[in-house]
């Protein structure tokens, strides 16, 4: 009887692992909630993707102002030239919680998004793009902030 139970357990866990793998990086928030609470950029990266190995190439494209007068609303546009990327994440290293936002990409969606971010102070802003093979591509840009914006 015990043996049967044991076997059953084995099968369920194998099934669970298989499901996780097919989902891939889908919904970083639900699968890696720790990443959102990480206090350093590298910890956020490690929690979200399991690695801090990134390729600095032109696959990830980051558009930001050089100087932000108001850190409470910094316009940002992120994009990638990879057509089958799985995920994009913005990390603001000097923010209390560096992981700012993450997108899952789906077919038909053009991987170019604009929004506005809050920055506490002058910081490097990183865009991480996860490609179809799970490799990470990075773009970095420093933004000088004259008035911080994390008091909200």
């Amino acid at each position: 009887m015990k043996r049967r139970k044991f076997l059953g357990l084995g099968f369920t866990s194998v099934a669970a692992i298989a499901t996780l793998q097919t989902l891939g990086s889908a919904s970083i928030l639900s699968e890696h909630p720790k990443a959102f609470d990480a206090t350093t950029g590298d910890a956020a990266l490690k929690d979200a993707y399991g690695t801090t190995n990134v390729m600095k190439d032109d696959k990830a494209v980051l558009k930001l102002p050089d100087i932000a007068e108001n850190g409470a609303a910094v316009p940002i546009t992120v994009s990638t030239s990879l057509s089958n990327a799985k995920n994009m994440t913005i990390i603001i290293d000097e923010n209390p919680r560096p992981l700012a936002v993450s997108w899952d990409l789906s077919e038909g969606t053009i991987p170019k998004f604009s929004t506005r971010i809050k920055m506490r102070k002058t910081s490097n802003v990183r865009l991480i793009v996860e490609d179809a093979n799970g490799k990470l591509h990075e773009a970095v840009k420093q933004v000088k902030v004259t008035v911080g914006g994390c008091g909200g």
Partner: peptide, 17 residues
């Protein structure tokens, strides 16, 4: 499919295609 945090500005502006 967006997962924002409090680091997105008040009254979020979003553009995509």
């Amino acid at each position: 499919d967006m997962y924002p945090t409090s680091a997105i500005s008040k009254n979020p502006y979003i553009k995509f295609a």
